[in-house]
Design a protein around this nucleic acid. Structure first.
Length: 732
RNA sequence: GGAUCGUUAGCUCAGCGGUAGAGCACUGCAUUCACAUUGCAGGGGUCGUAGGUUCAAAUCCUACACGAUCCACCA
């Protein structure tokens, strides 16, 4: 053994050997118990970051442990096309490198280029996963936008549609003017910001608003029904002066109005505000669109037409000031605005014709599965989060006006039933007459089933990326692809553990539970294990702009993957954010060094015994145990406790606790105490002691292998020269 | 507004009913010995605050303070 452990050479060597010999690929053996983790597919729009290293480590620990237990163990890797995010990332790249927009390329070319970009990222990412030591089955690697997934995804779409759980409707949606797409409620985040609050005059009323530019779309004024100041006005109409002439408006009474806010009077703009939309529905108000999908005022706004909302806001306020319609302005008003999660543009709420999943019926089963503990969530405190979200679930808008994603399996007979939005956004669509029939079909239909027209137009919209990834646990296992009895799906589904970050509990986990149960009749996984965010040493979120990003590959180069893996789980607590600084990684590298040197010490002794032709007895725990010296008995009993402890902690998903036990035992019990106390005996060629030392050490290597696979494998090989790698050895 | 989590040694965190623990940092000593990516020894905490339950409380309960996160339609 070399004096110094050289992870650079060792890690690559072992990974190649493991992969080449097929240890990552399980045999489907009906008699054997399966253990299966479907990897959360990383977004293929960049390289791996430390958060990926985190889940890869945790999952690899479970996978290696179960493989060593003898379970038929499948870890299925993949990559996510990550619809909107990738489109945004690629558009930025296009802008930066070529000065082009997606419109310059056109839809087909944009899609092709984006696919090229994504697939090349995927390849890079896969090699990065290898560098971390992820022992996943590359034969089954999947990509969410692989055409082979069209069929199962379309099947789901069709079934939902047939069951009345998927509908097309004109609803209030979150519109991102930059991405030019509708977003689900989850894809919107809120940001505190200071905006002027304008007190504007509406005939007899003064009311407060941050959006005076939407006044052209107002179709009522609302007050609280019990507000004594205004009660007499309810249901009455009033006439008043606006910037573009006289107008008439009705006063409504609605509980949604907070009498304590502003003057207690609000303008109601059903077309451009979610609360107002609901009020409009309750009171039968007209929904008057005044902002177009490009974020500009339309021709209902008179001379303000074509101004974008922010410019319009300023000008409208100024003009109102001039006309004496502006009472006062509160410049210190703070509120939160909705922004696009991915590109941070302020959301424009719009009424639009989109596809929605009726979520409640799906949620009911998803709630039951968790309540009756068919699905366990670890740590437990997330159960409440999950249940509260599920119980208050709202319909899910799944259509996107993006180019990067699965197309909706919807065909229109002629352009008649395409939405106005779709027609404007897709000017190249063939103008054709048809009966307007809407066909939902798994495969492209040849002709309209109603009028036999052959010119069907596929819905230009794409699916929310989470709609397809929400089916990942069964689509990757070839659900519905084969009639054979021994498919991956039949064997590995429901999968064992879904390990992922708590931040996508709703986005992903919740959807997988709903769609998994809906399509397969079974839960998609038995356990949900949620890990926390990796933060920097000071608890700050890592970000490129802050410059505090720890690049896992850089760390692996300098300290080795084992050190990084150990640092990511040592001293952590399930589901809590992890603070990671370089000193921790260094400490784990030192531990590896300690482990290495124990190995060297033992090897030196083995060699010495061999030189002197002293036979090292093969140690048999059962029969020889009683005859051993006191200290040998003691270390073996401590080892027994360690084995039990480590096993129990892994079974309980306390990976940190098991790693800490191993660290403590190997360094402070075995090296510092036992080996130090036994040195003299080894000098005197005591073969019993050497044999116990080897046995104890080998057992430690095995227990440590899931955590630090490379160094343990290398030492094990150097010590035994046997062609039986740890990856395939038996746990205990 | 609702919910959740956290507050324990200088730092990061474990412990979650029975005489305060780990890693890092710190101090002193050691070093041709497998390892200075080391060893030995040591300093350092009335476990956020105030009440309560208990023979016994970091540990259970109740308030409060501070910090963080999530959810919600703050015009």
């Amino acid at each position: 053994m070399d004096k110094v452990y050289k992870h650079q050479d060792v890690e690559k060597k072992w990974y190649e050997l493991w992969e080449k010999r097929g240890y990552f690929t399980p045999k489907v053996e009906p008699k054997k118990k399966p253990f299966c983790i479907i990897m959360p597919p990383p977004n293929a729009n960049g390289s791996l970051h430390i958060g990926h290293a985190m889940f890869l480590t945790i999952e690899d620990i479970m996978i290696r442990y179960h493989r060593m237990l003898g379970d038929s163990t499948l870890w299925l890797p993949g990559a996510d096309h990550a619809g909107i995010l990738t489109q945004v990332v690629f558009e930025r790249k296009l802008e930066k490198e070529e000065g082009k927009t997606r419109y310059d390329l056109g839809r087909d070319e944009f899609f092709r280029r984006c696919m090229e970009f994504t697939l090349s990222n995927k390849k890079i990412m896969e090699n990065q996963m290898r560098a971390i030591g992820a022992s996943c089955d590359w034969n089954r690697t999947s990509f969410t936008l692989d055409p082979k997934f069209n069929k199962p995804i379309n099947m789901t779409f069709k079934k939902l549609y047939a069951d009345g759980l998927l509908y097309r409707a004109k609803r209030m949606i979150n519109w991102c003017p930059r991405c030019s797409t509708a977003l689900s409620d989850l894809e919107v985040i809120y940001k505190e910001q200071k905006d002027p609050l304008y007190y504007i005059r509406y005939g007899p009323f003064v009311l407060a608003t941050v959006r005076p530019e939407t006044k052209f779309g107002d179709t009522a004024v609302a007050v609280h029904p019990k507000d004594k100041r205004y009660q007499r006005w309810i249901d009455k109409e009033f006439e008043f002066e606006t910037l573009i002439g006289k107008a008439k408006m009705k006063v409504i009474g609605d509980d949604a109005v907070d009498p304590k806010f502003g003057t207690g009077v609000v303008k109601v703009t059903p077309a451009h505000d979610p609360v107002d939309f609901e009020m409009g529905q309750r009171h039968g108000l007209e929904t008057k669109r005044v902002i177009d999908f490009d974020g500009k005022l339309n021709d209902k706004c008179g001379k303000y037409k074509n101004l974008n909302v922010y410019k319009a806001r300023k000008i409208v306020a100024e003009d109102m000031q001039i006309q004496g319609l502006l009472e006062k302005v509160d410049e210190n008003y703070t509120h939160s605005v909705a922004i696009c999660e991915r590109c941070k543009t302020i959301i424009e709420p719009m009424v639009s014709l989109q596809w929605f999943v009726k979520a409640k019926p799906l949620a009911e089963k998803a709630i039951r599965a968790v309540k009756n503990e068919e699905i366990k969530i670890i740590p437990k405190r997330f159960i409440k989060n999950y249940l509260i979200w599920m119980e208050n679930i709202r319909d899910w808008c799944i259509s996107r006006q993006l180019w990067w994603g699965h197309r909706l399996p919807v065909w229109f007979c002629g352009t008649k039933n395409l939405s106005e939005l779709q027609l404007t956004m897709n000017p190249s669509l063939p103008k054709s007459n048809g009966c307007g029939e809407i066909v939902v079909s798994v495969n492209p239909p040849n002709s309209c089933p109603k009028c036999q027209n052959k010119n069907l137009i596929q819905d230009p919209d794409t699916l929310d990326t989470w709609f397809s990834s929400g089916q990942w646990p069964f689509t990757t296992l070839d659900f519905g692809q084969s009639n054979s009895k021994l498919t991956d799906f039949n064997y590995f589904y429901p999968t064992s553990v879904m390990e992922t970050g708590y931040e996508i509990l709703f986005f992903w986990v919740a959807r997988m539970v709903m769609l998994g149960i809906y399509m397969t009749g079974k839960i998609p996984f038995e356990v949900v294990y949620l890990h926390g965010l990796v933060r920097d040493a000071f608890g700050e979120k890592m970000s490129k702009s802050k410059g505090n990003v720890i690049d896992p590959l850089n760390i692996i180069e300098r300290y080795g993957a084992d050190s990084l893996r150990m640092a990511l789980i040592f001293g952590t607590s399930t589901g809590r954010d992890v603070k990671l600084g370089e000193s921790k990684i260094e400490a784990m590298r030192n531990f590896g060094n300690k482990l290495w040197n124990i190995g060297r010490f033992i090897k030196i002794n083995i060699d010495k015994f061999k030189e002197q032709n002293i036979k090292i007895r093969e140690f048999n725990t059962k029969s020889d145990r009683k005859k051993l010296s006191a200290e040998n008995k003691k270390i073996l009993s401590q080892l027994g406790m360690l084995t039990q402890g480590v096993t129990r902690e892994i079974e309980n998903y306390n990976f940190a606790a098991s790693a800490e036990r191993l660290y403590k035992f190997i360094w402070h019990t075995f090296a510092d105490k036992y080996i130090e106390s036994v040195k003299e005996k080894l000098r005197q060629n005591d073969d019993e002691t050497l044999s116990v030392t080897i046995y104890t050490y080998s057992s430690c290597l095995k227990l440590l292998h899931p955590f630090m696979p490379f160094i343990t494998e290398e030492i094990n090989f150097s010590l035994t020269r046997r062609d039986k790698p740890l990856i395939s050895s038996h746990w205990s």
